[in-house]
Write a protein that binds this DNA or RNA. Structure first.
Length: 445
RNA sequence: GCCGGGAUAGGGUAGUGGUUAUCCUGAGGGACUGUGGAUCCCUCGAGCUGGGUUCGAAUCCCGGUCCCGGCCCCA
């Protein structure tokens, strides 16, 4: 029996690989235009990097292993943590802000389904150390432009965790994560029931998450003024917001850490205004909470059609992770997008060029090889290695979709004129090698 | 982890509890020793896997693997 691929992995044949390469280039071109520099991190890291960021709950879906030295390692399940790790250890003293982007394969032990694989690719960007509204608007606009560059559109939903967290501050801590979950899951009735059960006035939480767009923003403003006048302690009354960098402890973002929940709707409004300036179409949507405790400000997600259950192609927001990896606290904004999901709906015109076939008679094989080497400085050249005759070589060229064949035989060599055949037109002419070079050069640029 | 549907040459497929398992495409060769994707001929190549029922299983039953879709989850 042949050996199969491991579950949830894929082979990419030439055509698909070419298409993926093109899409990647198109998106990276946008990132480059916005001043983002690509970085790369290892495929595997210390397991702790990921558990510290996301909690022990990720263990179920992480590919982890001990190496021969007994170290606990993991195939990276995402790229934000490695990039932040790199930033903390190598870039902290570089000028701010840092604009970084990345592309790489990630691994999660999950049940494969449409748009979900065990090995998958993420492309993303992080803007580290910038001021909030400007950074947030830039990153969201950049995310939109990036997917647009491959002909993909999507609905952008923008939320603000500062507000949600401030509301939650009025609710007992033990209930907060459950509420976040229900908001994230869009379980309205369950949320209402829950708020009733725990006997909390919901401070407009239900309406807030129900409304979208301008109405949601108005509601938010109203809630903020209510919160301000309700005279309890000012925002962020919790424990110190700078935690011990917890080098020894295994505390995770989910457990120990408290992200500052300062409420600054003003800033969020600025972000939104800037988005208008960038010409980004978006929906204000306070249901976007991303369920992660290290997000602190604006969060956003992008959804696309045609992907079945896995509609989300991009997610991001402002977070504070640097301190978790032992660095100075630095506010960053970033996004990651699901490259494989995007590839399912990508619009790329297929203009892949077939190489030129250098067709030769067996008696001039040596000369043909020399000519091939020379022509390859200009165009892709394929040389027969099957010992086929001219007819069969042309047949192969035609079936490969080649537009041109260069034909070399004894008579060409004697006359120093080589045949250039246009396979699509069915015409050919005899030309000096230099002239053929010029012709092909013109065709292939 | 859960639910449903699948698996027959490299790709796409047909069929039946009973000899050498269809057809299309593909690949290699030939007709064709210097000119094409056509045509004709030849060749190559398959019932996921392990067990069970049966005189006999690719077909029926069970387990596993993998694929497709959905749930859970989604850093």
């Amino acid at each position: 029996m042949t050996i199969q691929r491991p579950r949830g992995t894929r082979d990419f044949l030439p055509e698909e690989t070419w298409k993926r390469g093109r899409a990647k280039l198109a998106m990276q071109d946008v990132l480059e235009r916005w001043g983002y520099q690509e970085v790369a991190t290892p495929t595997f890291e210390h397991l702790e990097l990921f558990t510290r960021k996301s909690g022990a709950s990720v263990m179920e879906e992480i590919y982890s292993f001990k190496d021969k030295g007994g170290r606990d390692l993991a195939l990276r399940p995402e790229l934000t943590a490695p990039v932040m790790r790199m930033y903390v250890s190598e870039l902290q003293n570089s000028p701010k802000p840092q604009r970084l982007c990345y592309y790489g394969n990630c691994f999660r032990y999950e049940r494969p389904q449409k748009g979900r694989f065990r090995e998958f690719w993420q492309l993303g960007a992080e803007l580290i150390g910038g001021a909030r509204p400007d950074s947030e608007a830039e990153v969201i606009a950049l995310a939109e432009r990036t997917i647009q560059s491959v002909g993909v559109g999507g609905d952008i939903h923008v939320g603000y965790l500062g507000l949600i967290r401030s509301i939650l501050d009025r609710i007992e801590a033990e209930h907060r994560s459950a509420i976040m979950r229900m908001i994230d899951k869009k379980e309205h009735s369950a949320l209402k029931e829950f708020l009733d059960i725990i006997g909390q006035e919901h401070l407009g939480l239900l309406e807030l998450t129900d409304l979208k767009g301008k109405a949601a923003l108005d509601k938010a403003a109203q809630i903020v003024s209510d919160l301000g006048s309700s005279a309890s302690s000012p925002s962020a009354p919790m424990q110190s917001k700078i935690p011990e960098p917890s080098l020894a402890g295994r505390s995770s973002a989910r457990e120990g850490r408290k992200v500052s929940s300062e409420l600054n709707l003003e800033e969020f409004c600025q972000t939104v205004e800037l988005l208008d300036a960038y010409g980004v179409k978006y929906t204000v949507d306070f249901e976007i909470v991303r369920g992660l405790e290290y997000y602190s400000g604006t969060v956003f997600e992008i959804y696309a059609e045609g992907l079945g259950a896995q509609r989300q192609i991009c997610g991001g927001g402002t977070y504070e992770l640097a301190s978790l990896f032992g660095g100075k606290e630095t506010s960053s904004t970033g996004f990651g997008l699901g490259f494989d999901r995007i590839m399912e709906i990508v619009q790329i015109e297929k203009t892949r060029r077939s190489p030129v076939y250098l067709v030769y008679t067996p008696d001039v094989k040596v000369e043909a090889a020399r000519i091939a080497i020379k022509l390859r400085e200009i165009v892709p050249i394929v040389l027969d290695v099957m010992g086929r005759g001219i007819g069969a070589q042309l047949k192969a060229a035609a079936s490969a979709g080649a537009k041109f064949a260069v034909i070399v035989g004894r008579s060409e060599l004697d006359s120093k004129k080589i045949t250039l055949r246009d396979l699509s037109a069915g015409e050919q002419e005899s030309l000096a090698l230099e002239e053929i070079e010029m012709r092909l050069k013109a065709e292939f640029t």
